[in-house]
Design a protein around this nucleic acid. Structure first.
Lengths: 142, 142
DNA sequence: CGGCATCCAGACCGATACTG
DNA sequence: CAGTATCGGTCTGGATGCCG
């Protein structure tokens, strides 16, 4: 989630990208976008608010613990809002903020780009794997 | 890098995003974009090819091992090309492919979005942190 | 120079059990 | 229902040393 603290490197020609914002901050946001669960949660909330367990059921590969921390991180960053109804049993719902909707469009563009280029990537991987003996590969096959 | 295998969830309204491409494949590409080192390498190669140690020096927070595996992954996905000159000592240079240049524009757009929204995010975090006792937070502060 | 092999500490993440 | 607490396995990523 963090981990960008020590990174001071920045291409001179790309410094403009980070005007006034340091690499760590932008990096932190980028890794949020690259985070599997965050992306899925944001997409899941695309057209209506959901309760905790509704989210849990939709994204059933996630554990409650991880879903909880993912939601907290998204709330903290201002991408979603937590609504709590103090009753018994408690009901909590999560909803995208305007900022969260903006994030959604970014994620969608990214996904569309992935879809457009997936054949090229798949082909590149096939070629690479064919020319490289499995034993010499460090990375796991996808 | 991988880790999307078990994920079958997809919002019905967003299925179009993944037409013909399954969630795992798109997810794998998304996490590559979210990967700190991959992003930095692609940005570093923006305007000219670089040797291994040039990259290492530019991104000096990375260890040789991780840089190596990052480069392999990027080569495998067809984002960069590895040129090896068999001499003694060996010289190797890495260069963006057209696909890699395309990835670069995507990353740039993402970085620009982060920069545009960084104040909103920073503000949201400040508000959240102020209203939440440190002991009750699961996520690490950034 | 450009790696690869090994070892090791720490982060992450799932499963389980428990609470208001 | 919506979490929290704890434990334990896996996986990542850094440091070091060696090799062509």
């Amino acid at each position: 989630m963090a981990g960008w603290q020590g990174v001071t490197f920045l291409k001179p020609s790309y410094v403009e990208l980070m005007i006034e914002g340091d690499c760590a901050e932008v990096g932190g946001i980028l890794s949020r976008v690259g985070d599997k669960w965050s992306v899925l949660v944001v997409v899941a909330l695309a057209d209506r608010p959901l309760h905790f367990n509704e989210l849990k059921r939709l994204i059933d590969a996630v554990s409650a613990k991880v879903l909880t921390s993912t939601l907290k991180a998204l709330v903290r960053d201002g991408f979603i809002i937590r609504h709590e109804i103090s009753a018994m049993p408690t009901r909590v719902s999560y909803e995208l903020t305007p900022l969260g909707r903006d994030l959604l469009t970014v994620v969608r563009d990214l996904a569309l780009w992935s879809v457009r280029n997936r054949f090229a990537i798949r082909e590149a991987r096939k070629t690479y794997d064919a020319s490289t003996p499995p034993a010499r590969r460090l990375i796991k096959a996808v």
